[in-house]
């Protein structure tokens, strides 16, 4: 089985995954920009746009491109898996071993990837239609608690933090939209607009979140998750849709990233079966996610991740243009 995804599902998958990844990164993982997070998401989208154009228009050859991309998506997928585990621990499952949660989740992801890219993409397409309705319901029920004053100062921690945040965002966008690099032969091409729309949606979501909770001086990861899922104004009945939004959003992100990691592995080992690659990628992500140091390292490395993938993409493009490898072929 060759792991690939056709154009329409790829676009839906990129949209859902980019929105979820940027929101997770800018609000919960590393809110260093504070009120300026919306700018980081938008500029990060613009920064990642050239990479998105290259991967959606050309088929880049071999090791130089797929090895770093595979590593990056795998590591980021493991980080998302760790976020899911910590979220579950925060909610109700802290009396269960994390393995009890992780193994069924891994099996569900594995099953998705085994059904190939279109299963991942069409699932995201369904989610992209349900999530706005849930979000609208949550926003309307909390409408009177939104405080636009808390969005100011609009630049948050200032330009240096915003620039750092947008380079990180670009790294997260690369990992979340890597599905665009594996189009099917007869696919109708994967436009970059949905991925960029994902970053605009993430920017809007950060604004909504920062209107609910005043800019904080400190607080840890769980503190920020608490501010997101139970922000002191949320009645118990509202927590269910918010939790569904959070977990299902992360599930689709995870499916996209681990599909991309599996597909990268298959491009590196063309004779390997896609199912075997998926099994390896999911198992590796499960093991990596159990490292306590991973989330902090992924935040520190996310900007560098974008630089590394960008350089690898450029090198692949140049190699192919010079005829050193297979010629760049328009995917259409």
């Amino acid at each position: 089985m060759t792991l690939a995804i056709s154009g329409r599902p790829a676009r839906a998958a990129a949209l859902a995954a980019v929105a979820a990844r940027l929101f997770l990164g800018l609000v919960v993982d590393a809110p260093t920009t504070q009120n300026g997070a919306w700018l980081s998401a938008l500029i990060g989208g613009a920064l990642a746009a050239p990479w998105l154009i290259v991967v959606s228009k050309f088929r880049l050859p071999g090791m130089v491109f797929f090895f770093p991309l595979g590593l990056w998506t795998l590591a980021d997928g493991a980080n998302v898996l760790a976020a899911v585990t910590r979220s579950a621990g925060y909610l109700a499952l802290d009396r269960s071993a994390s393995l009890v949660l992780l193994v069924p989740l891994g099996l569900a992801i594995l099953w998705c990837v085994w059904r190939n890219g279109d299963a991942v993409g069409y699932a995201a397409m369904i989610w992209a239609r349900i999530a706005p309705a849930l979000l609208l319901g949550v926003a309307l029920l909390q409408w009177r608690y939104f405080r636009p004053e808390w969005l100011r100062p609009l630049l948050g921690e200032g330009w240096p933090a915003i620039i750092e945040g947008c380079v990180r965002s670009a790294g997260w966008i690369v990992a979340a939209s890597a599905v665009l690099a594996f189009p099917e032969d007869d696919g109708d091409g994967a436009a970059i607009l949905p991925a960029l729309l994902g970053s605009a949606i993430a920017a809007a979501l950060t604004l909504l979140q920062f209107m609910l909770v005043p800019t904080q001086a400190g607080g840890g990861w769980l503190n920020r998750l608490d501010a997101l899922l139970c922000n002191g104004r949320t009645p118990l009945y509202l927590q269910l849709p918010m939790i569904v939004l959070w977990f299902v959003g992360l599930f689709h992100l995870l499916a996209c990233e681990l599909f991309a990691a599996s597909a990268c592995l298959q491009r590196l080992l063309p004779k390997a079966d896609g199912r075997l690659c998926a099994l390896f990628a999911v198992a590796a992500a499960l093991m990596l996610s159990r490292s306590n140091a991973l989330p902090a390292r992924m935040v520190a490395f996310s900007g560098w991740g974008f630089a590394a993938i960008g350089t690898a993409t450029l090198l692949s493009l140049l190699t192919a243009k010079k005829g050193g490898g297979r010629p760049c072929a328009d995917s259409h």
Partner: peptide, 17 residues
């Protein structure tokens, strides 16, 4: 009263505030 958040809005960044 909420005067502080209105005053903060007149600053460009949190560092200045």
């Amino acid at each position: 009263f909420g005067f502080a958040e209105r005053a903060a809005g007149q600053f460009a960044t949190l560092a200045e505030w």
